[in-house]
Simulated scan of single mutants.
Amino acid sequence: MLYLDNAATTAVRPEVLEAMLPFLTRRFGNPSSHHTVGEDAAAALADARARIARVLGMRASDIVFTSGGTEANNLAVKGIAVAAMLQRGARHVVTSPIEHESILESVDHLVRVHGFERTLVPVDALGRLSPDDVAGALRDDTALVSIGYANNEVGTVQDAAALVAVTQGRGIPLHLDAVQAAGWLPLDRSSHGADALSLAGHKLGAPKGTGLLAVRGRIPLEPLLHGGGQERGRRSGTEDVAGAVGLATALELAERERAVEAAALSALRDDFIARVLTAVPSARLTGDPGKRLPATASFTFAGTSGEAVLLELERRGVVSSSGSACAAGSDEPSHVLVALGVAPEVAQTAVRFTFPHGRREALTPVADAVAASVAAVGSGG
């Protein structure tokens, strides 16, 4: 079985598991405990925080450990926006219609519960945001701009530095959802300039349930969780030391390998895309052909059922997906594809392939399986 749904989750890397194991067994202390066992755990947590900060080009004190990308996005959107509301009465947020549900639903919460107004800046047919359009959406009472660095369904990469230049000129914080970008795009703050950035460990070889929000210390942040005041009061709850160590290890490995992996996978991806488009007349690539994640290829196959194509592919030994795992089971067409101008009935034919780190073999057999699966579904057989 060939697993090509790595945007949904990845396997835990052996090096990550090895680094975590001591903190799941003999070094099991609570980092808030004031004795030698707790102090050992606290030292490991501080070391993981510092290692992550070095990769991100931020201060260790900027790192807030979370349970994953969804919590990190919730903390960024709600935490920054509510703090701005409390400090200066700001009640306006800017985002786009192609964001992950954890951002869009957090913005909806701000509107329903706190009386915020939202502006959804449209994207073009390739999923790209215009910095000029974002600039035009900003207001004096804008609390936050929250944008995905790279889209989880179609793989389009935004020009984060250009967007930050627009927001910084107005003194408005920009949050970058980098959950899909980790391991593929530069994360050092010098390359993008964002004020806050979200990551999820299970997208880059760490366990599910691990993640972080990196937020500059000067940005006020209202906590979502209250209690013992861990994470400098920004996220109460006993920290998962083993998870933090695993996340730091995975992030360091991904960054170390990023340039080689991105180049290798981009070449395989482009060959795969060309073969599918040649072999399947109904295939249409979604997202930006050039400015896309190195390991993502997504298509629509008009006149078919995306779910039927997925089942046929799995029968042939290829596991992929129709898009975001967080929207699995929904009968609604992808909100991302609809925002790109894809007709709803065509959006429901989407199939996404996301390739693993370390892949070096040509994807020709997968392209052949795609062509055969679409043909089988289209013929009813």
Rank of each mutant, 00 (worst) to 15 (best):
S106A: 09
V154L: 09
E153K: 09
S32I: 13
S32T: 14
D40C: 00
S33F: 13
S130R: 05
V37H: 03
H109P: 08
E99G: 14
A150W: 04
D133T: 01
L104R: 06
E117A: 11
G127A: 04
L144C: 00
G69D: 10
A143K: 01
M58F: 00
P122N: 10
D47H: 07
F65L: 10
G38V: 05
A83L: 14
L163P: 00
I147F: 01
V77Y: 07
V123W: 10
V157A: 15
N74Y: 14
L144R: 00
R49P: 12
P122A: 12
R139Q: 08
D132R: 13
K78V: 02
S106M: 04
D47C: 08
V113P: 07
S33P: 04
D124M: 12
M85R: 05
V77W: 06
G89V: 03
H100A: 13
Q158D: 12
A76I: 12
A137M: 04
V111S: 07
F28W: 10
I103F: 10
A84K: 03
H109D: 14
A81E: 01
D108L: 00
V157T: 15
V55M: 11
A83Q: 13
S61N: 11
I63N: 01
E105F: 12
H114Q: 09
S146Q: 05
L21C: 11
Q158G: 10
I80H: 09
A72Y: 13
T36Q: 15
A150V: 08
V123R: 11
V164S: 03
D140I: 10
G127E: 05
A43W: 05
T156I: 03
L144A: 00
E117L: 09
T25P: 07
G69L: 12
V157L: 14
Q158S: 10
Q158W: 05
D108S: 00
S96M: 09
A161N: 13
L75D: 06
V82P: 01
R27Q: 10
V93Q: 09
N152F: 03
